[in-house]
Amino acid sequence: VFVDDHLLEKVLELNAKGEKRLIKTWSRRSTIVPEMVGHTIAVYNGKQHVPVYITENMVGHKLGEFAP
Rank of each mutant, 00 (worst) to 15 (best):
H61D: 11
L14H: 04
A67R: 03
R29F: 14
A42K: 03
T31N: 13
A67D: 04
I32E: 00
A67Y: 03
R29I: 15
L12Y: 06
S27D: 04
V43P: 08
E9M: 14
H6I: 14
E13G: 08
V52K: 06
G18M: 05
V50P: 06
K10S: 13
V1N: 13
L22C: 10
K24G: 02
W26Y: 14
V50L: 12
Y53K: 11
I54H: 00
I54K: 00
K10V: 14
L63S: 02
R21V: 14
R29G: 10
S27G: 03
G38W: 08
Y53R: 11
V3F: 04
I23L: 09
H39N: 02
H49V: 02
L22V: 14
E19C: 10
I32W: 00
E13I: 07
W26T: 12
V37A: 08
A67C: 06
M36S: 01
D5T: 15
G38C: 07
E19G: 03
V52T: 09
K10A: 15
K17D: 05
S27W: 05
R21H: 15
V37H: 07
L8K: 04
N57L: 14
L7R: 00
D5W: 15
A16M: 12
L14D: 02
A42T: 02
I41K: 01
G60S: 11
N45E: 08
V52H: 04
K10F: 07
M58F: 09
V59C: 13
H49I: 02
L8I: 09
V50Q: 11
K47P: 05
I41E: 00
N15K: 02
V37C: 11
D4W: 03
L22G: 03
T40D: 07
M36N: 00
H6Q: 14
G64H: 07
A16W: 05
T25K: 01
T55G: 12
L14F: 06
K62N: 10
H61L: 10
F66E: 07
R21I: 12
F66Y: 13
K47R: 13
E9A: 14
L14E: 02
I41L: 06
G38L: 10
L14Q: 08
Q48L: 14
G18Q: 08
L8C: 05
K17P: 01
H49E: 03
V1G: 14
Q48E: 13
K47M: 11
A16P: 01
R29L: 13
Q48V: 14
K24P: 07
E9W: 10
G46F: 09
H49N: 04
A42N: 03
A42F: 03
E35L: 13
T31Y: 14
V43L: 07
I32H: 00
S30E: 03
G38A: 11
G64D: 09
H49K: 02
S27L: 05
S30Y: 03
E35N: 05
H6S: 11
M58L: 14
V3Q: 04
I41N: 00
H49P: 03
G64N: 07
P68W: 09
K20R: 09
I32L: 06
D5V: 15
Y53F: 13
E9K: 15
F2D: 06
Y44A: 05
L12W: 08
E19M: 08
V43F: 02
E65A: 09
E19N: 04
L12H: 10
T55S: 14
V1H: 14
D5R: 15
V43K: 00
I32R: 00
A42H: 05
N15P: 00
S27K: 05
M36V: 01
V1R: 04
M36H: 03
P51H: 05
G60C: 13
W26C: 15
K20V: 07
I23N: 01
I23Q: 01
E56C: 09
V11D: 01
K17R: 12
Y44F: 11
A16C: 09
L12C: 08
F66N: 03
K47E: 08
N57G: 11
V52R: 06
R21Y: 12
K62C: 11
T31F: 10
G46T: 07
L14G: 04
L7Y: 00
Q48P: 03
K17W: 06
K24S: 10
I41D: 00
T25H: 01
N15R: 02
